[in-house]
Amino acid sequence: MARLILASSSPRRRELLQQLGLEFEVFSPEIDESVLTGEGIAAYVERLACAKAQAVLEQFPDAIVIAADTSLGVDHQILGKPQSKHHAFEMWQRISGRKHDVFSGVCVRTRTEKSSIVVRTQVEFQQLSPDDMESYWATGEPAGKAGAYAIQGIAARYIPRIEGSYSNVVGLPLYETVQLLQSVKALN
């Protein structure tokens, strides 16, 4: 198999990809993650995943590149990573006591092929009290996480149910990633 590169700085994506038993390198590209005017969440995460893959492929043209981007959607708005404690609390107030969607765009690129997909998982979040929010913020876990939570961590206590791919909520839908790798003949 050709050189496989994960275009991400996320330790969660690295751990997920390791579960597949693949040997890969990690290279994190810098791209503009601004939302385009009128852009929906599915289009947004797919565009970013493909932009990350393209940026890495330009530096390593003989590689197979896997890239992903994950964001939450609630009320047709994108919830990314919290910029502050106040921002995290605002996000939690929006998802508290209701369901929201987690979208991941995944793109696999080679010099001659490109394959991408968007995966959606619905997550139910319990009603959070102000004390819950203070306690969770104090753990440090919400920083740098889409929607200001990590389902694979302490936040699992607040999530009674999901519908769809668990690994998608963590940041890389594994089943679909394998399908994309097979579609570009990177896996048998």
Rank of each mutant, 00 (worst) to 15 (best):
K99S: 15
A155T: 02
I64D: 15
D62L: 12
V119Y: 04
R161F: 11
Q18E: 15
Y175N: 13
V108G: 04
Q59A: 13
M133D: 08
I41W: 13
L79A: 02
Y149R: 07
V45P: 08
V74S: 08
R157A: 15
G40M: 13
R157T: 10
E58C: 12
Q127N: 10
E113T: 05
G40P: 09
M1T: 10
Q77F: 02
N168M: 03
Q18S: 14
D131M: 13
S9N: 14
D132T: 05
Q54H: 15
L48C: 11
V106L: 11
H86K: 15
R3T: 05
D131R: 11
R109N: 14
A186R: 04
R161Y: 07
L72P: 00
A67F: 00
E163F: 12
C50H: 02
L172S: 08
Y158S: 02
S8M: 07
A156G: 12
T177N: 03
E176M: 00
G171I: 00
E134I: 04
R98L: 02
R109W: 06
V74P: 03
S10N: 12
S71M: 12
E134H: 09
A49G: 11
R120H: 11
E23W: 03
R161H: 12
L72Q: 01
E113K: 14
A49F: 07
G140F: 05
V45I: 04
M91C: 07
A68K: 07
L22I: 09
T70W: 00
E23A: 13
I117K: 04
I95M: 03
Y149D: 02
I78P: 04
S183F: 11
E124S: 13
E33F: 08
A156M: 09
W137V: 05
V106D: 10
L57Q: 08
G105Y: 05
I95C: 07
D69A: 08
A53L: 08
S167L: 06
T177F: 09
P61Q: 00
E90P: 04
L180T: 02
F27T: 00
K52D: 05
M1W: 12
K185W: 10
V65K: 06
P11I: 12
V102S: 01
G97R: 11
K99L: 14
I95D: 06
V26L: 07
R111T: 00
F89E: 07
P160A: 03
S34V: 05
V56S: 06
E30A: 12
Q126G: 14
Q18H: 10
